[in-house]
Amino acid sequence: MAMTRIERRYAWLGLALIGPTVLVFCAVIVFPLVAAIYLSLFRIYTPTLEGAWVGLGNYAELLARGEFWQALRTTLIWTAGTLTLQMLFGIAMALVLHQSLWFRSLARSLVLFPYFVSTVVAVLVWRWLFNDLYGILNHVIMVAGVSDMPLDWLGTMPNAMVSVILVGAWKYFPFVVIAVLARLQTIPEALYEAARIDGAGPVARFFDITLPQLRDVLVVVVMLRAIWDFKEFDLIFLLTGGGPVTATQTLPLVVYKEAFSMNQMGMAAAHAVAMMAVMLVFMIVYIRRTRGGQGA
């Protein structure tokens, strides 16, 4: 389509405004992304950064190794577990906070806080709570008579996985709360009044009105949280370091370990790329969703 001179001038101005962003994008995202794929074709020793071309050798080795598959399984368990809890807590808490509650805004602040706090802080606090000798959790458990021995929260299985999943849920469920709460506030009150006139009780109103209205936002939140949980590094690395042994070692942790403990930069890159390939499925679904809803 022919553009007038002024339209072309505007287009150039638009490009000039986005230009710096595009440059930075290329330098710190696109180039490293391509480089990561390129690196995965080499065997590289991290301290010297000397490499030898191995083609798809890293991938062949990775697929043949049990470690990758085990890590993938661990990642999926962690993602599924923490995501489920996040959604359940999140929706429930959003429904509670949507009611008229005493000191509602204070309650909201308290609930949101874990999401914004640094993962480092969250982990330190929880490790203190989990502490085997002086941790308050073990104290409570023993006083309540649940167990007469202090529990080893992070050092044995399946405790470690459960603990990680729990802390993950505690840290990230506020995201679901905010998203759902925002949507709840836009559901027209008239819908509920109509349902009440039609004789629907609170339970029926939840399933017939609230849930269908929340559907879209829930799909988006599930996708987004699934992507973010799948790639979570800090929380697991700091809580268990992947242990005991490799029982909570998710894919991002394997990448880190390969690169900086095993000093196999190429192998690490291969893991990272493989991990991204798995994530791509989620990402495409998510992008499709948001694009459809937003119409660009």
Binding site: F31, P32, L33, A259, M275, M276
Partner: peptide
């Protein structure tokens, strides 16, 4: 932009470290 918004840091960190 949307794609990179979802990209995991561990993928970029190796090349960035080298860089």
């Amino acid at each position: 932009v949307l794609f990179t918004y979802l990209l995991p840091s561990v993928v970029l960190i190796l090349p960035l470290y080298l860089m």
